[in-house]
Write a protein that binds this DNA or RNA. Structure first.
Length: 920
DNA sequence: ATGATCACG
DNA sequence: ACGTACGTGATCATC
């Protein structure tokens, strides 16, 4: 950023602004669990002022010891003096680190408050003819305002940050006293937060009135007999010494004994690579745009060579193969066609008879049909190379060659590489041993990150800054980027390969340190292959049946819509919660269950309470249900059917905080089952000809995991006896003989069991059961009496979470919990529930992942045609060849139940059928 | 882009 | 005094 020459000095009251930012912004944390909101807010305020002021000099002043600046900070915070919040304290050194990285002068001095530093520097600078701006959230600084020193006070408002500016004249206008007199006003009225006693009985109004007339405490004292409120007059005399002392305390030092080298505070470019790296690390994505940094040159640009043809690529690859590097970074560029493009392609080809290209058979023969390949980047951790290439066989040739040399391929997305490189019927040349997924490994180390991209890894592991895809290419697709910015594209691809190759080894060491190397090697990495095959396989959908289903919904929806309009007396958008709320609660005057920030809540549980009294509500509920089924499932699924007649959902391995996998485009993990009408959707999921579905789901896996991890004998006993677990809980909690447990008792006990797994809270349980919080609390107490080890275990998890900042599953998967160190009670409470839930949910997730890998590998090893298609958290769906049915069932039973050795047995329920509906 | 709602485990 | 059950993703409306 080019600085205009000016004689402007910007001074920032560091702690004050940091504090402002901290309380003005919601708690932000980065993936590493660091709190960042204050630093982020500070930078925003600083940039905003710099943009308008364009100063040539800048200095930030801090108090020497953070706790000594306690004062005004918490004055606005209910007047109580708490220790500085931990989340804020942590950010003080971070802020200084950022400022230092930006080359900004940071000043602090033992025994001096920031106020005194600011005052002194301002005077020094003004004496040298500078224009000074002091930024602070503290109005006490107004006493420093002159004709050449401006006090800027940022205000965080809804619309953004607004800044109030005060020169001496502005102070006089706003407060009716001069900046110097402002001291006397404060001395009279006092300030508890600052330990300034003031004069009793004199508040802001009286103080201002007195000083604006007499201009100083001394003068007011002399004229005490004329002072207006008699009580003030009396007290000014009686407490005169105290008033004088207060004035001394309130006065900011402007001649402090410091050396301040103005020239050293001259601004150069603050957008340095170091600052950029910090912005990346702390995830200040909005600020990155301010940095002009292009691909940094510290990775030796000239090391990148560009190959135009396959031959030179092969030559380079051979060269790489001879090298010593144990990891070869790999970056495959691909673009998955959208459903729309498939549609267009099919239509276009329809006329000239090439539709067969997109039939199911063709695709299963050569899954690469799905991709457009643009090229490949390779790196050995020193040199990198990008080779444009659209023929997958050239790529596989090179990779096979590298693998034959014993190299390991490290890349950002092994699953896609597998899908691209491994046509179904060919023997797979990518194996567990010769690939390494940098993103999946990073997910284990930092499971809370939103994205796993090379540039973040570069700054974390290598300390270098690389622009992200969007920074260079904006919203361009890969194809557009390659077309319009070939040079940058080359650089980008090369960097990605370079980073993967460099990071892999370091990351592996981190995994070992954190004792997650086994988890990675034995579970997550093999799982990549399992998921790739599941995605390639897809699941057959009966498109016609799906359309009929949608049609049926449509018919009823039209009826309901009209009925609702009639009942409401007008037409409106039933899908709009806002409009619906107005109709129900204002126009029709229903008793307002008020909720949500934006207005009335119209959520199902609210409407259900109204349904018995208002027929329209029942219709709306039915309408909602049908609309959901139609848009999300009937239409949503239909849009995802590939030309092969199947749906190829994506399974995400780096998304959830607990270690579960998730499913997208479409989500096949939330297909309706609870309501019969929704469950019917499952009839459109078919096995292919000659195959049959086998669906196996774990029975109570989370409670079994809990019984194992807690070691509670009562829970273990129930599982060992094969008892109905909710009935058993009811029996123990309600002191009822097992056989005499009522349905209601069982239902309540079931809710309690859920509560335990979720991280119990009386409120949550009471809401779920529709009972009072007190009753719910009693249930919980009784539960812990019945299961003595359970409280100990759950408290232990919370303690562990607080101690280590993270909790672990049985297999060592970690879940950081920054919420536990929050000063916000609710946040902390949330953290405690996470600490209780994550090890349980996560261990169950680990176990089914192990089962998936084992099932997948056995199907493969035993040469079966049956395939694993879906995972739904505690359930696996297999498409089994009919002849293989017995062996498939055996495999499922053995591998799912044998996936973990717990003190209680793991059991599954299994069903077969010719639709997913029938297999449940 | 965000919030509300609702589908699943 | 506060205001909550844990984990996801898709859709629609609204900003």
């Amino acid at each position: 950023m080019k600085q205009e020459q000016s004689n402007k000095l910007l001074l920032i009251d560091g702690h004050s602004i940091l504090n402002r930012a901290f309380f003005g912004l919601p708690d932000l944390t980065n993936a590493a669990g660091q709190h960042t909101n204050a630093v982020y807010g500070f930078l925003n305020i600083m940039f905003k002022i710099m943009d308008t002021e364009k100063p040539s000099y800048l200095t930030v002043a801090f108090d020497e010891h953070a706790p000594t600046f306690r004062h005004k900070m918490f004055a606005e915070y209910k007047g109580t003096r708490k220790p500085m919040a931990d989340e804020l304290r942590q950010q003080v050194p971070m802020m200084k680190q950022m400022l230092t990285a930006m080359g900004i002068t940071v000043i602090s001095k033992e025994g001096l408050e920031a106020d005194d530093l600011l005052g002194t520097m301002a005077r020094l600078a003004e004496d040298q003819g500078m224009e000074v701006t002091i930024v602070s959230g503290d109005r006490d600084l107004l006493q420093l305002a002159t004709d050449h020193t401006k006090i800027s006070i940022p205000k965080t408002k809804k619309t953004g940050t607004e800044i109030e500016n005060y020169y001496a004249a502005d102070v006089a206008e706003r407060y009716l006293v001069t900046p110097t007199e402002f001291i006397d006003v404060k001395a009279l009225m006092g300030d508890t937060a600052d330990n300034i006693p003031g004069v009793p009985g004199i508040g802001e109004k009286t103080a201002t009135a007195i000083i604006s007339q007499y201009h100083s405490i001394e003068a007011a004292h002399e004229a005490a007999d004329q002072l207006r409120p008699p009580r003030a007059a009396k007290n000014i005399v009686e407490f005169y010494d105290q008033a004088v002392m207060s004035k001394e305390l309130a006065t900011i030092e402007v001649h402090a004994d410091i050396t301040y080298d103005l020239q050293a505070a001259r601004l150069t470019d603050i957008f340095t690579p170091e600052a950029y790296a910090l912005c990346k690390e702390w995830e200040f994505k909005n600020l990155l745009g301010r940095f002009q940094i292009q691909a940094p040159r510290n990775v030796a640009e000239d090391a990148f060579s560009q190959a135009e043809d396959t031959q030179s690529l092969t030559a380079f690859a051979e060269e790489l193969a001879k090298g010593q590097a144990s990891y070869i970074g790999l970056y495959l560029a691909w673009r998955q066609r959208s459903a729309k493009e498939w549609e267009d392609a099919s239509l276009a080809k329809d006329g000239d008879g090439q539709l067969s290209l997109f039939t199911s058979q063709k695709i299963s023969e050569d899954a690469c049909q799905e991709y457009e390949i643009y090229g490949i980047a390779l790196s050995d951790g020193e040199k990198s190379l990008w080779a444009p290439m659209d023929d997958i066989s050239c790529i596989t040739q090179v990779l096979e060659h590298l693998i034959a040399q014993g190299k390991r391929l490290a890349c950002m997305n092994v699953k896609e590489a597998i899908k691209i490189c491994t046509p179904h019927l060919q023997e797979r040349f990518l194996h567990y041993e010769n690939v390494y997924d940098v993103a999946v490994a990073e997910y284990l180390l930092q499971p809370l990150k939103n994205t796993y991209v090379a540039e973040d890894l570069a700054s974390e592991y290598l300390g270098i800054s690389v622009p992200g895809y969007g920074e260079t290419f904006g919203k361009r697709s890969l194809a557009q980027a390659l077309e319009e910015m070939p040079k940058e594209f080359c650089s980008y691809a090369c960097y990605e390969a370079y980073i993967c190759s460099r990071v892999a080894g370091m990351q592996w060491e981190s995994l070992k340190e954190k004792q997650m190397d086994d988890l990675y090697r034995d579970v997550e990495l093999p799982l990549i292959f399992t998921l790739a095959d599941m995605e390639l396989e897809g699941i057959v959908i009966d498109a016609k049946a799906l359309e009929e289903y949608g049609g049926r919904l449509m018919g009823r929806l039209v009826e309901l819509e009209q009925k609702i309009y009639d009942e409401a007396g007008e037409e409106f958008n039933i899908n709009s919660p806002k409009q619906l709320g107005l109709i129900l609660f204002e126009k029709m005057g229903m008793p307002g269950g008020k909720k949500t920030k934006t207005g009335y809540s119209t959520a199902a549980d609210v409407l259900e309470n109204l349904a018995p009294d208002y027929p329209i509500v029942a219709d709306i509920l039915e309408y909602r249900q049908l609309a959901k089924l139609k848009s999300t499932y009937a239409e949503g699924l239909s849009n995802c059917i590939a030309p092969d007649g199947r749906i190829h959902s994506s399974f995400q391995q780096t998304v959830t905080a607990t270690g579960r996998i998730s499913s997208t485009e479409p989500n096949l993990q939330n297909i309706p089952i609870r309501m019969e009408l929704g469950k019917l959707i499952r009839k459109v999921f078919h096995p292919k000809d000659g195959f049959v579905f086998v669906d196996a789901d774990y029975s109570q896996i989370e409670l079994r995991v809990l019984s194992h991890m807690s070691g509670d004998q009562n829970l273990i006993h129930a599982f060992l006896q094969g008892q109905d677990i909710h009935r058993s809980t009811a029996s123990l909690v309600f002191h009822t003989a097992f056989e005499d447990v009522t349905e209601l008792q069982r239902r309540n006990a079931k809710a309690v069991n859920f509560g335990i797994v979720y991280g119990i809270s009386a409120f949550g349980l009471s809401r779920d059961l529709g009972i009072s919080k007190k009753e719910a609390g009693k249930y919980i107490d009784d539960y812990f009496l019945a299961y003595p080890r359970m409280k100990e275990f759950l408290d232990g998890l919370v303690a562990e979470g607080k101690e280590a900042g993270e909790v672990k599953t049985m297999y060592g998967r970690i879940r950081p919990i920054p919420e536990l160190s929050s000063s916000n009670f609710m946040q902390r409470q949330f953290g405690e529930r996470i600490a209780m839930n994550s090890p349980i949910q996560g261990t169950a997730a680990d176990i089914i992942k192990i089962a998936m890998v084992h099932v997948h590998d056995r199907l493969q090893k035993e040469g079966l045609a049956s395939r694993l298609l879906l995972q739904v958290h505690d359930e696996l769906l297999i498409e089994a060849k009919e002849e293989e049915l017995p062996v498939v069932k055996k495999i499922l039973q053995e591998e799912m139940e044998g996936a973990a050795k717990l003190v209680v047995p793991l059991t599954i329920d299994m069903h077969t059928g010719y639709t997913w509906y029938d297999a449940k």
